[in-house]
Every structure is written in structure tokens, then in C-alpha cells.
């Protein structure tokens, strides 16, 4: 089966400045692809190239076997949802949602029907005649999403669309948007610098660093088997043993005694934290690194402990299986 979206060896330069290189990925129809990477790493430029706002310096983009590499943004069936909602402030919510339909040859009745349908889809049926200034941040972003979805794009691009929302709303919006995209069977590329967001939103995660994908895989794969030291550090959930190996953090536990059969790091209890009702212990290691570990036992602040793991859990980067 040929993939629905195919990006082959894409690269982008502005003069001598290389933004990204050798970017390739494939998506099935209806799949959500989270592109995870630090800010300023070229993710936004990648999206702009996919949307057609910038041209690729080399490489190709195929959607449904159609080569879109040279197709202009305003005829490409790709929609982009920006970081800010960017609603037209002088238009009502209805007019905003229906904006892109103006450029399609549809009769008025059909346009009205679609606008009503999508207002309902994003739960804002009662807000049609209001103006953007009367809406909250989350509602505005929902309108922006409806405005893109109403065009039934073959590929929807989302550029950190929740970054302007507060934390609680952000978590709620992730759940809601993912559900909506799945309901509508939309193929989407979702860019974020937040690993929780990437995992929550994506069927596939691509870790994008220094202008290329370092690893592409399911959230579990990337989380459990980071392919490089940098990815392990970036996720922060793998305990890096040395530059070649790591231990998934859930295999770490605390011990009061030294144990030569295990790998251990010495440290002091620096504090206890409660997260979602569970006790986590913060340990300050002698290497002056800090680590937070879930522990059911009671420890006192200042107590000497050993962060311990079974050597069999040590894994190498670039390798999947466990040692031994």
C-alpha cells in the first residue's frame, strides 16, 4: 500500500543558511504525526514548506500520489493552523469559519450548511454572530481549527496551536483536538516542543533536532528506545548511564544499602514531592545531578540512599533489545 503523504529527502536553505535537510517521512491516511523538537529547530519552516508558503530547496512532497512540490499554497489542499488563532477581527465567527469557502465554487446554501455543521463540530453553534473579541482564547483556537477543517484539507498542519493557551486548557484542547481529528479522519502533522503534547497527540512521533529527524516511531518506541543520547536527554525520562547507554527510568528504585550486583548511584534525599497523590522522592546525587523517583517507602530528608537498577535493564542507544 502506498502511503497517503510522502515527503522525500526534503531540504530548505535560505542562502547559505541550512534550515533542514534530508527530511523524509510517510503517513497513512488519518494518521497524526507529532513533530517534536526544541524551539528554533526549523520545525515551523518545515510546516511552511509543506503548506506551500515556502518552496523546498530540494526534495518532494506527494499527497495521495499527487506531486505537490511546486503547487502554490492557495491551491494546495493543505491547511495550516497557526500558533495564534489569527481570526479576522472584523468578521463574525460565521464569516471567519466560512472564510476559505469564498474561494470555492459553492452555492450560498451549501456554504451556510457547512459553516453551521462545523460550528456545531467545534461546539460553538451559539457563537456564530459574535465577533472574535467576545471569545476566549480556547474558543478562538477552536474557530481557527474549524476554519481550516471546513476546507476538508488532505493534510492539516498544526504549528504549536495550543502554545498561547494556559496549561489546564491546553491539556483539555489536546484531548479534544485529537478526538476531532480522528472523527474526521484527518491526516495531520502536529508540531510541538512539548514531549507530553507530542505523545498525547501523535500516532507517530518524529524527534526533530538540528534540521532533521533523529528518530521516527510510535510514542512507545521513541519513549522506550531513544536512538541517541540527545533524544534520551530531550525526553528526560531515560536515565543516561553513559554516552552509549541508558536505563528507562521506571526500572530505577531506591536502596539504603550498597549492592555490588546492581548498578548504583550514591546520593542524599533532597525532598519528597506528591504528584497526583503519589509520593516521589528527589535525590541529590554525589555527581550533583538531581533525580526524582517514585518510591512507596518512607525516606527522611537528608538520608543517604543508593539509586539502584538491575544491570539487565541497561540498554544501548541505536539498539532496541535489552542486554543480557
Amino acid at each position: 500500500m502506498t502511503p497517503f503523504v510522502r515527503v522525500d529527502k526534503a531540504s530548505k536553505r535560505f542562502g547559505a543558511n541550512e534550515i533542514f535537510r534530508n527530511v523524509s517521512f510517510r503517513l497513512e491516511e488519518g494518521q497524526i504525526f507529532s513533530v517534536l523538537g526544541p524551539s528554533g529547530g526549523g520545525k515551523t519552516t518545515l510546516l511552511r514548506c509543506l503548506a506551500g508558503l515556502e518552496t523546498l530547496s530540494s526534495g518532494e512532497l506527494f499527497i495521495n500520489d499527487e506531486n505537490l512540490t511546486r503547487v502554490k499554497a492557495n491551491v494546495r489542499q493543505v491547511s495550516l493552523v497557526f500558533q495564534e488563532p489569527l481570526l479576522f477581527p472584523h468578521m463574525t465567527i460565521r464569516e471567519n469559519v466560512g472564510y476559505g469557502l469564498k474561494f470555492l465554487k459553492l452555492n450560498k446554501k451549501e456554504k451556510n450548511r457547512r459553516v453551521s455543521e462545523f460550528l456545531q463540530t467545534v461546539g460553538l453553534s451559539d457563537f456564530g454572530d459574535r465577533y472574535p473579541r467576545e471569545l476566549s482564547g480556547g474558543q478562538k483556537q477552536r474557530v481557527a481549527l474549524a476554519r481550516s477543517l471546513i476546507l476538508t484539507p488532505k493534510l492539516l498542519l498544526l504549528d504549536e496551536p495550543f502554545s498561547s493557551l494556559d496549561r489546564e486548557l491546553r491539556v483539555e484542547m489536546r484531548r479534544w483536538v485529537r478526538l476531532l481529528l480522528k472523527e474526521q479522519n484527518i491526516t495531520a502533522v502536529f508540531v510541538t516542543h512539548d514531549q507530553d503534547e507530542a505523545i498525547q497527540m501523535g500516532d507517530v512521533i518524529g524527534v526533530f533536532r538540528e534540521g532533521t529527524f533523529e528518530q521516527i516511531g510510535s510514542p512507545e518506541e521513541v519513549y522506550e528506545n531513544p536512538s541517541t543520547l540527545a533524544i534520551a536527554r530531550f525526553f528526560g525520562d531515560a536515565w543516561v548511564v553513559d554516552e552509549n547507554s541508558y536505563i528507562p527510568r521506571r526500572h530505577l528504585y531506591l536502596k539504603r544499602n550498597e549492592d555490588h550486583a546492581k548498578v548504583q548511584w550514591k546520593g542524599d534525599i533532597a525532598g519528597i514531592r506528591f504528584i497526583q497523590g503519589l509520593a516521589f522522592t528527589e535525590v541529590l546525587l554525589t555527581t550533583s545531578e538531581r533525580i526524582v523517583i517514585y518510591t512507596p517507602e518512607d525516606y527522611q530528608e537528608g538520608e543517604k540512599v543508593f539509586v539502584t537498577a538491575d544491570p539487565s535493564y541497561i540498554r544501548d542507544f541505536h539498539r532496541t533489545g535489552e542486554r543480557g
Binding site: 494546495r76 495550516l80 476559505g100
Partner: peptide
């Protein structure tokens, strides 16, 4: 905010609709 230009373009608008909207 020049992002509005890009927005109009990705939603299918022409150069003139960019100026207008």
C-alpha cells in the same frame, strides 16, 4: 501581524484577497 497574509494564502486566497482581508 504578517501571519495574516500566510493565513489567507493557505485558505485559498489570492494576492487581492490578501490585500482585502
Amino acid at each position: 501581524n504578517r501571519a495574516y497574509d500566510d493565513l489567507v494564502e493557505t485558505l485559498g486566497g489570492s494576492f487581492l484577497s490578501r490585500i482585502k482581508d
